[in-house]
Nucleic acid binder design. Structure first.
Lengths: 106, 106
DNA sequence: ACATTTGGCAACCTCCAGGTTGCCATTTCT
DNA sequence: AGAAATGGCAACCTGGAGGTTGCCAAATGT
């Protein structure tokens, strides 16, 4: 259910320090339970749960229920989406700058 | 290589569709007045002004007062910051995936 | 069998982002 | 000089984000 092409939700998911920290923790590819992920945080387990669900809705992580615990792990596609968006913007900007400079140097 | 920078504020600035649209408009490098930027929007000039100030605080755009109007234009550095962050995350993820696959294939 | 770990659900609170309206100052046009 | 364009400022409203607490259900350890 990850809409491709609209980068705003992905950026929104990335706009919170707590979620960035979670992503960094998960960026080693290992799957972790909610309890594990909220262990060394000053936040409540519920708060962490909410953040994880936000990340999941944005498609940045996926979850699997294993016994009594549900494990979360990274999913890379939306990051690629966000990166390609930034690439587009900065490329257009570079192009425009290049043209301007060419005009000036002429 | 590249400077530091906390990427969360940049992502926060990028997390709004209106601001993304503004950035795209400005990504051709030309500077525009607030009135021009809010011309083909369904939003109020004030709303657009607020969004522009958010982008400015994040360093994504800069403004210059020219006569009675203030012109806004792109500034590329924070975009580079955000991109490098996404690069870091996705590289770490790729590395982890690689190690996992190496383990599995053994 | 019982206690513990783990997590889902719901109610609640507070704060701020996004948006509006109204008014006023300055610059530009005629 | 007078009218219009441009935008800064402030008050105000509303919804949702982020966080907490409390309770309950299911899976696990002993």
């Amino acid at each position: 259910m990850t809409p491709q092409g609209n980068p705003a939700p992905v950026f929104a998911a990335l706009s919170d320090p707590t979620r960035l920290a979670l992503l960094l923790k998960l960026s080693d590819g290992r799957a972790r339970s909610i309890a594990t992920l909220s262990a060394d945080t000053h936040l409540t387990r519920q708060a962490v749960t909410k953040h994880l669900h936000v990340l999941e809705k944005a498609g940045l992580v996926g979850s699997v229920r294993v016994g009594r615990e549900s494990r979360f792990a990274c999913q890379p596609e939306p990051i690629a989406t966000a990166r390609s968006y930034l690439d587009t913007v900065s490329r257009q900007w570079d192009d425009a700058l290049g043209r301007l400079q060419a005009l000036v140097e002429r």
